[in-house]
Design a protein around this nucleic acid. Structure first.
Lengths: 335, 335
DNA sequence: AGCTCCTATGCATTCGTATTCACGCGAAGG
DNA sequence: CCTTCGCGTGAATACGAATGCATAGGAGCT
């Protein structure tokens, strides 16, 4: 591989001048610039990014820490992040970790300046590496999940409001006997969605009994089992809110297996509006987050944070939107 | 951030000795080693990966080029690759590109030695950057898709055999009036799957007419439209083979919309066995590739290739497995 | 002509680490 | 007692690009 020194020799200039051309500086004579450009083209020169990164103290790499990609919401978010990162002229390093995310290696990568900053999509308040990184004021942005009082930039959507949207829709249609499924209180998104939902009911004087509030893993399988329990008894709810779509699909399958008609006798709503939710046979009502906006703001914020360390931390919440579909009674007019 | 020079000062040794300790060399006295280790611990030293990479001419970063993550097969493969890369003590850089994949930036990243090697999951023979990278003998491994006669390591599963599996299953059950949907001949996987399928029928003297061989994008939506056309006429096939699961789900939804009973009057089979295929309401017969093995071998091969440039190129094919489900008549015994 | 000023360029240094080379010192051997 | 060897260590250098500083040379002014 040709180095800038080689280019210098070929063009008959010093390495410094080559560097100046590469950096598009204007204090270079037009004729020499051309000679250098010719040499660059001729050799197919590609700058050594390591050396450049070392000298500039900036690698152009953005790290992303995310959960396993088995929940299709994360690939969607990841795709959007990748798009933003690429169009900002940067590259992306990825860590997928099991929950609860322990992101030690990723944090070491910032400390070792292998990456310029880090985006967490699945942060938990228990993650020690995250805490340490924040304490050291490293450039970090939380997206999707939030952690109150953590001194770093956070970009989320309003999950409390999202949960409330579903509750209000249920209430407006007289479905007052409800259940809520899924979630782990350590995970901010599910905690908030659940809270928004239950609180809206509480405000109407309806307390959701404990056996109607079921935790479960964020998988189709776990949700199906919980669904069978929840819907198997005679005392079954008239509507179920699931804190994410995979869980909703599992409950939907449980209902199907039990011969419970959706939406006639049971309504189901999910969260995230992953692409499958819109498929005909699933047709799941779900709360949609503005993924592209989330990703865009997260990357923008991180890039600015990297440039300017001393900046007040921002905590931006986007609002979510209810996509009403067949699982809650809406009948499409098929074309 | 503390540097190795700082550590040297604290431990009262030279920077060279610190480096020797970091590299676990044995030509350093035990007492000095301890002093250095103490200093390292005390300061929470993290090596500068840029500098190390520059000196060692190895970054510890593996690049992965993949398509948009909207097809759940890629997240699955990506997850497996991430797992392998991490457990090899390496890090992963990711590019998601639109099809046909143009991977210029990724290739430049190797040339600029920002990454040590590259794994392509969605290679096409038309990609100029890929061709160039191969011509320069850069460390590259193709996984999932293959390109005949391309001088680089390739790890795939036997898509021809996979297509044949489906055909033989259809034939064994007397479903001889068939169609095949999806695919683009530039994409090796779909081309091979289709070929395996049609060839098996041809060997039984059955030619599948052209209007029963429909190309379409690898999306649920596109497939649904094609499905409506294909199944809308009176002359409809008794079984459809779709070159991937998203397409199969789209055709399944088209059948549902038209009121065609699956599996009674129509059989459908997909490919990739993405997680949703096993869900109750979908229950799609599909061909499963050994994703974990693919990922493991791909990473292993790349790591060896990076270490040893002159090695014969390997082209390994794993075999695939037919997962028979309800969309082709198999009835589960529900527990 | 002598002075200043500005432009274009080269030289030298820097980033943090790994590694080569050279050397001092103590032990072993004659 | 003088060599030889080997172990442990430090000094110096290289990796490739970016940049501060110095300077040559030309233009413009008095």
């Amino acid at each position: 591989m040709a180095t800038s020194k080689d280019i210098a020799r070929i063009a008959g200039v010093s390495q410094a001048t080559v560097s100046r051309v590469l950096q598009n500086m204007d204090n270079v004579d037009e004729s020499t610039r051309q000679r250098v450009l010719d040499a660059l083209r001729e050799t197919g020169y590609v700058p050594n990014l390591q050396a450049r990164a070392m000298r500039m103290r900036r690698s152009g790499l953005i790290g992303v820490v995310t959960g396993r990609l088995t929940n299709p919401f994360y690939p969607e978010l990841l795709d959007a992040l990748a798009e933003e990162i690429t169009s900002a002229g940067l590259r992306m390093a990825l860590w997928t970790t099991d929950e609860p995310a322990s992101s030690t290696v990723a944090v070491q990568a910032i400390q070792g300046s292998a990456i310029d900053g880090l985006i967490f999509t699945t942060a938990t308040s228990k993650d020690p590496a995250l805490r340490q990184a924040v304490a050291q004021q490293l450039p970090i942005v939380l997206v999707n999940r939030s952690i109150a009082r953590l001194q770093c930039d956070q970009v989320t959507s309003d999950n409390v409001a999202g949960g409330r949207l579903v509750a209000e829709y249920f209430l407006a249609h007289g479905r007052t006997s409800v259940a809520v499924v899924g979630g782990d209180d350590i995970i901010s998104t599910s905690r908030e969605r659940r809270r928004g939902f239950t609180k809206a009911f509480a405000q109407q004087g309806i307390e959701i009994p404990a056996h109607r509030q079921r935790k479960c893993d964020f998988t189709h399988d776990a949700a199906r089992k919980v669904g069978l329990e929840l819907l198997g008894s005679d005392d079954r709810p008239a509507a179920v809110f699931c804190v994410n779509d995979l869980v909703a699909f599992g409950v939907q399958d449980a209902a199907h297996q039990l011969g419970i008609a959706v939406p006639d006798t049971l309504w189901i709503a999910g969260y995230d509006d992953i692409p499958m939710a819109a498929w005909d046979r699933i047709d799941m009502t779900s709360v949609r987050q503005p993924i592209d906006e989330l990703a865009k703001l997260a990357v923008d914020t991180l890039v600015r944070r990297i440039k300017k360390h001393d900046m007040p931390f921002s905590h931006r919440r986007f609002s979510a939107e209810l996509m009403v579909r067949g699982s809650t009674g809406w009948a499409p007019a098929h074309d």
